[in-house]
Amino acid sequence: MDMYLTLIQLLDSTVRLATPLLLACLAGLYSERAGIFDIGLEGKMLAAAFFSAAIAAMTGSVWVGLAAGIAASLVLSAIHGIASITFRGNQLISGVAINFLAAGMTVLVAQAWFKQGGRTPSLIGKARFEPINLPFAEAMQDVPIIGPLYFELISGHSILVYMAFAAVPLTWWLLFRTRFGLRLRAVGENPAAVDTAGVSVVGLRFAAVGICGVLCGIAGAYLSTALQAGFVKDMAAGRGFIALAALIFAKWRPWHALYATLLFGLFGALETRPDVIESLIGMKVQGQLLSALPYVMTVIILAGFVGKAIPPRAGGEPYVKER
């Protein structure tokens, strides 16, 4: 029973750690499926994390904070869109710029507003997303096996976690069952065909980049208002890049994005519980190895040794209507 509880706790923190990865991964999915590479996921999350925490601290309402976070992320999305769609600039360079812009601006503004060395005040009460207890969670707690599973793992997360998991089927439906989704995928494979059909390539790509901004905004807000209580400098801590790795790992598919981010979340959870691994496989695993594992696995997948990851064909290429 003890072992079972440990496992449940481990999976519980897996879900917590996977949520921001999942949201950012789906964000990248929309953008890259439409042919816009986005290595600025990290920056957008960071900006959203700061502005949602800052505005939540000022207004005392986490929902206003969430809106501010999404708005901040959307501003960066707009920059990325203008640079890579309107002015046909290099999408990768634009992404790099956005990451640095967010890394610098968040600390600069945090220092100017709060003067606490680049952090926001700690969030309390309504300024944070509180865990939601699902119905009967307390009552079922003592039921063997299912009780702890329901109480610890399924119940007791913030609303953003449930939103992230709901976004997976929604994304699948939107991309593969609607006209908008078909066009969005087409614009990432063969924009000229979409253009010939009389649909705006620029409009579709901006829509995709916009959805990407909203999802990154929620991911960032989750970091600072649900996972933790406030913003600290560099709190995205490479999650945007792990999400990018997960996206490649998932080969740009929504359900696989869920599996990939859960796997990478599990690595993160295991990193904090070295004792669990030791008792499970009977030997010590270096924490550094676990933190490098998502990246190593992504490189292996990219190399095509275990199934080939083929990105959308028009990804990274600005669309030029006339030659």
């Binding site: 640079a83 002015f87 600039g89 999408q91 360079i93 634009s94 790099v96 710029a97 640095f100 610098g104």
Partner: peptide, 14 residues
């Protein structure tokens, strides 16, 4: 870092 980002943005992407 902000200046660096702006330089990359204007000389690179924009």
């Amino acid at each position: 870092v902000v200046i660096q980002a702006l330089v990359i943005l204007f000389t690179g992407a924009l």
